[in-house]
Design a protein around this nucleic acid. Sequence first.
DNA 1: CGAGATTCATGTGAAGTATACCTTTAGGCTTAA
DNA 2: AAGCCTAAAGGTATACTTCACATGAATCTCGTA
Length: 404
Amino acid sequence: MALRDEIDGFFDGFLKDKLIFKDKGVLQANYAPEEILHRGEQIKQIANILAPALRLEKPSNLFIYGKTGTGKTLSTKHIINKLNGISKERNIQLKTIYINCKLKKTADTEYRLVAQISRELGKEIPATGLPTEEVYRQLFDIIDDKRQIFILVLDEIDQLVKKAGDEILYSLTRINSELKNAQLSLLGVSNDLLFAENLDPRVKSSLSEEELLFPPYNALQLQQILKQRANKAFKNGALVQGTIEKCAAYAAREHGDARRALELLRVAGEIAEREGKTKVSIAHLDLAQEKIEKDKTLELITAQTKQFQATLYAILAARKNTKEKIFTGDVYTIYQELCSRVKLRPLTQRRLSDIIAELDMLGIINAKVISKGRYGRTREIALSANPELELKLSGALKKELGMD
DNA sequence: CGAGATTCATGTGAAGTATACCTTTAGGCTTAA
DNA sequence: AAGCCTAAAGGTATACTTCACATGAATCTCGTA
């Protein structure tokens, strides 16, 4: 009974003392403000390009690129929402589909992408079993059902191509020639500025009928964006003077990533709140910086399969054993021991090699192929984490793998 | 001493296999006329 | 006879394995200055 009261008391206090935030959601990544600052020009252009859709004419394919946190996703979603609003109001046969290609297990192969698109349109497609052709055919049927325009947004399209190749895009750009009633426009969004360079020329020319570059925000613009959101998110006076400026400066240093700046501010607020403070100070920003990095990686690895986790753990262990550089062979030996210890069926070295390459792609480790001359050829593996994070990772992995 | 051959440990590509899932289809059973 | 259910057959995507060949600089070899 006593415990019960104590907990009630805790929750009460938690609710009553909203020390810092007024509405934290405003700082969350998926929040869409009514007014998007400093992107007026880009939004207008996107609108211009997509506008024909409202007259049931196929808009040009559009390719948007710019670094992370420059408002690409936000702006496209904004326009998409507006289009949806208008088409609903006027009863225009316009549908939009938004797919984020980065989400693992969702859209990282041709089959999964097409299946996901169909799912967005309300058709259940099994995870496996159907021929890819069949899934395409079903998608056609849905799309070509009547005279209508589709706008397909592929966010983080570079991730998709990196994993699954650009033939997918070729197929997608060719869909139109097979459609009788409907028309489909592609809107590709990429974080990688050089992405288009390596595409098949046919795909490239067809995907980027129109192109749009989102430049990074500068420190001043970031400040204004932060202020706009902070006013809604925080209680009056919850921010120590200069916090926003500092936060903007941090983010500007990292190629003007607004998403990161907002996250930084939010996490700083959360930390301050947990400390029971009523004000967010610059010190909290620094703490937040570390925490974000930790959480990102932690989240990433817990989402991986056991095999990936075991591999990473083996790398961490190898790292602990020797101060010297780590090579694939060392990792594999440790990995095998580890497998027998946690009762995991060990994979072949061939597969491990691929897994290491994938971990590298995920940015969790740094691996590059080197030749040691007489002593063969291998991957030289380094961790991109700092020692403290390393410790946390290793702890988390132990738990994931069920070790004591 | 230096050019070319050798060597090692693993990268890498292609093809094959296991698994988990899908649709189709034929046969058997039930049901209703 | 028509309708429905079930299990087998035949097919796919994905993750992984097997096999075989490719890599590329440190090291070795050997001819030459």
